[in-house]
Computed example of a mutant assay.
Amino acid sequence: MMLKANVEKVRLDKYLVDALAESAEYSRSYIQTLIKDGNVIVNGNVETKQNFNLIGDVEIEINIPEVKASTINPEKIDLDIVYEDNDILVVNKPNNMVVHPGAGNTEGTMVNALLGRDAEFLSTIGGIERPGIVHRIDKQTTGLLIVAKNDKSHQVLTEMLKNHEIYKEYVALVWGEIKEDKGIIDAPIGRHQNDRKKMMVTSKNSKYAVTNFDVIKRLDKTTLVKCAIETGRTHQIRVHFNFIKHPIVNDPAYGKLAEKQTDFGQMLHAYKLEFLHPITKEMVKLKAELPKEFTDKILQEGGVENDWKTI
């Protein structure tokens, strides 16, 4: 692909994003990757810096590499589809399902299951290992997950997530009695200094993170809360509640050390999503009921069914 133009001072990546804005195939992140990998030639020279400034007459050649075939095996796995149209679908992710393949998890993932439905309907922006995946939730966190069925919807959803335009609400069962009816946990999160698989509240190499919560019901030894996150840091809700000394029940990484763990994992559920549809711009409001293991634990803690039915 060849582009010729006379431009005022502008960044290379911004120019290409604007020049290719009408195409659903090229997201900002994809263009930045093309530049970094040496696939963009400016006036005869390979340019690998995305912030390279274009000035005056420019001739830009863009080499689009061939798409590699995916090595992920499609699998026939039943999924709980909460919403679906031509552009997106929303899945109620079950417990103990990894979202996309990685080291030690090459089968039984959400991506395997999505490919088993129809590989043709998934976006390609996330790469061959993550088709359709716009965001993720932890293996043992259950609940709502948005999947993009084409690159245009993926591109818009990514920007919406970046701009905090998708409302995500979680329900969690945490240890101890939270005395406040509501609160805000404003604490930066970064990689754990002693365990690289974990995160922690720290001022070193960390990112801004905010979790809002409301108490739903105080139970015998636990508190049922709903949380709305302003940021989407790795393990954010789990780390934040551990930080305020109310770790999530049954959390294998951040829970009470004396707690006897079960295979279900942390009692954390992505309960609600509200967002403008990326293509139609109509409001989408969705809920996913709590898993039985979660509701059983609430009942064991002295709760009743109405405690979560009224959320």
Rank of each mutant, 00 (worst) to 15 (best):
M2G: 05
L3W: 00
L3I: 15
K4E: 12
N6F: 07
V7H: 01
L12R: 09
D18Y: 00
L20K: 14
E22M: 15
A24H: 11
S27M: 02
R28F: 00
D37G: 05
Q50K: 15
F52P: 05
E61K: 10
T71C: 07
T71H: 13
D80A: 09
D85Q: 05
D87V: 07
I88F: 11
V91Y: 02
N92S: 10
K93F: 08
P94H: 13
N95M: 11
N95G: 08
N96W: 06
V98K: 11
V99P: 04
G104Q: 09
N105S: 12
N105I: 05
G108L: 08
L115P: 02
A119T: 11
G127Q: 13
G132D: 02
H135W: 08
L144M: 07
L145S: 04
S153I: 07
H154I: 02
H164R: 15
E169T: 06
D181S: 14
P188C: 01
P188H: 13
I189D: 01
G190S: 06
G190N: 08
D195S: 06
T202N: 07
A209P: 04
V215T: 01
I216E: 14
T222P: 04
T223K: 04
V225M: 09
C227W: 00
E230L: 03
F243R: 13
P247K: 13
D251R: 06
D251G: 12
D263K: 11
G265M: 07
L268G: 08
L268D: 00
L268C: 01
F275Y: 04
H277R: 03
P278D: 02
V284K: 05
L286V: 13
K287T: 07
A288W: 05
A288D: 00
A288E: 00
L290N: 03
G303H: 03
T310D: 12
